[in-house]
Nucleic acid binder design. Structure first.
Length: 286
DNA sequence: TATATATGGATAA
DNA sequence: TATCCCTATATAA
């Protein structure tokens, strides 16, 4: 589930559920029990996403969460009922007056201080979802690297928040060869990548779903402009209904199938433990 | 039932 | 590059 858009949507959802309210904290699974006791009863001040990292200010404490590959943080309305019996895998449960949030399988769940938070943020590249993020900072590193752009895009120290789906899809959308070394990438190509991410990722946040297909992107943008989105998001996230849009991608998990653009057979290749999907025929630009 | 896989990343070697 | 962590789900057996 989680690329940067997921965490940004989550931060907003948590704030809507708990902001300025005292929350009860517990760790049904037990591994976070001592820390949960320290934040139990504290006021939920705010939640912020930076790349794929989530920071929650709870009184003097900062809760740091990283969902990793399989983590999930579900926020549900209580609907006037007491919270359900917690599943034994729940690392952290927060309960407020109106909502309950259950965290399972996170890569990181810890209490940290400001200094630690700053250190974590300092290691991250610009986040396309952050206002005023500086894409030039990323370019400085890309331009000096001999690693492939397909690999660099996944490096959180270069760009924060990009994961495997956005990486593969954006490169295909721009017909860029994933294996082009950073040094060999045109500045205009980088500008196009950044611009595409800045356009696409807010749609991902609004719909809690990665959208990269032209028709879906067009629909999503139109809905965003007319303000229908908020209603959709509430429905989708509050009730855990399915995705609003059909799950469709250009290349992600489509190896062996024909390219939507040129008809050639899509391929995949493991790079640094992750599967890159691309079209060898039409992704030739750099 | 067992196994593979997943939108991640740290750490060991 | 390999291994490990954490959980849920889809598919195979």
């Amino acid at each position: 589930m989680p690329e940067g858009h997921t965490i940004h949507a989550l931060a907003a959802r948590l704030e809507r559920a708990f902001r300025d309210e005292a929350v009860a904290a517990s760790s049904p699974q037990g591994r976070f029990a001592a820390d949960a006791a320290r934040i139990d009863g504290q006021v939920f001040e705010r939640a912020q996403a930076v790349g794929k990292h989530l920071f929650v200010d709870l009184g003097p404490q900062i809760l740091h969460v990283h969902l990793g590959l399989i983590g999930m943080f579900h926020v549900k309305p209580l609907g006037g009922m007491p919270p359900s019996e917690p599943a034994p895998t729940i690392r952290l449960r927060l309960v407020g007056r109106t909502h309950v949030a259950d965290l399972r399988g996170p890569m990181i769940c810890a209490l940290i201080d400001d200094e630690r938070r700053s250190a974590i943020e300092a290691r991250l590249g610009p986040d396309p979802l952050a206002a005023g993020a500086d894409d030039e900072r990323a370019w400085q590193r890309i331009n000096r690297s001999r690693k492939a752009i397909g690999e660099l895009l996944m490096d959180q120290a270069i760009v924060a928040g990009i994961g495997n789906v956005y990486r593969c899809e954006v490169l295909h959308r721009l017909q860029l060869d994933p294996f082009t070394p950073g040094q060999g990438l045109n500045l205009l190509a980088w500008k196009a990548i950044w611009q595409d991410l800045v356009m696409l990722m807010p749609l991902g946040v609004a719909f809690s779903q990665i959208l990269t297909m032209e028709d879906q992107v067009a629909d999503a943008r139109a809905m965003t402009r007319t303000g229908v989105v908020r209603e959709v998001t509430e429905r989708v996230t509050g009730e855990r209904l399915g995705d609003y849009f059909e799950r469709r991608f250009h290349v992600y998990q489509r190896s062996g199938e024909p390219c939507h653009r040129c008809g050639n057979t899509l391929r995949d290749k493991k790079i640094g433990g992750r599967t890159l999907y691309w079209c060898p025929a039409c992704q030739t630009r750099h």
